[in-house]
Design a protein around this nucleic acid. Structure first.
Lengths: 114, 114
DNA sequence: GATAGCGCTTACCTAAAGGAAAGCAAAAAG
DNA sequence: CTTTTTGCTTTCCTTTAGGTAAGCGCTATC
């Protein structure tokens, strides 16, 4: 007896958190979702609203977000052809995460300062 | 007039979200916080509770989490010397984020399957 | 005395992320 | 015509994250 106490299992939490992180990981994805969600639909508007992002990275991330069905790319066929990005409805499910991160980030800033 | 419509500002949200991500980014940090939060305090217990993590990465991340005041490393001086990791109270403020990510991850799995 | 476990560290390597800068086709503006 | 804007793409390069494998000092166990 007196076996070694085994570790506490937390896989039920760790697993879905990791699944979520796989989709929204990286430095820029949530910023892009926020920007598009707030109404920016043109490439350059999105770029301008996110300080520091390069067009290369933005183009790459937009493609990934499209594949994850979080954003749609719409081509409007008139003269000139116009391209707009919109949030998919599914992106709204990320709101609680974004909100929680925002609140935490704001508070953390205060904690660091003090 | 008829100036170009400027982009919609979202920096107030983007900025704190990025601040938060700087602390909890990466593939493993939240998993470690969850594991320690659930009561795993020994290095190998934490390692065993997070499938796939290597000791190198775990050691590195634990140091970073210590610096961010999310986890404390305690050396117990008896024979043999024992080292335990515990959550700082501040780590509890991450609970809403972890919960939101967990819920989203669970739901996302369902969405993908269908 | 040999082996195993604990809490790491070290060295090495690969892949992916990301930055910088330039360019480009099409159209509009001057 | 020249320049500017838009929505990107391309190339090149550096940084970082992370994986693999081995080992090490110490203790405990067989």
């Amino acid at each position: 007896m007196a076996k070694k106490k085994p570790y506490n299992d937390c896989f039920n939490t760790v697993k879905p958190v990791r699944d979520a992180l796989e989709v929204i990981n990286g430095k820029w994805k949530l910023s892009i979702i926020i920007s598009v969600g707030v109404g920016n639909e043109r490439f350059t508007d999105i770029q301008d609203s996110i300080p520091g992002i390069s067009p290369k990275v933005l183009a790459k991330e937009l493609k990934e977000l499209e594949q994850h069905k979080l954003i749609k790319r719409i081509v409007i066929e008139d003269y000139p052809v116009k391209i707009v990005y919109k949030s998919e409805e599914y992106a709204a499910t990320l709101t609680p995460i974004i909100y929680a991160l925002k609140e935490w980030g704001i508070n953390h800033k205060k904690v660091i300062v003090s």
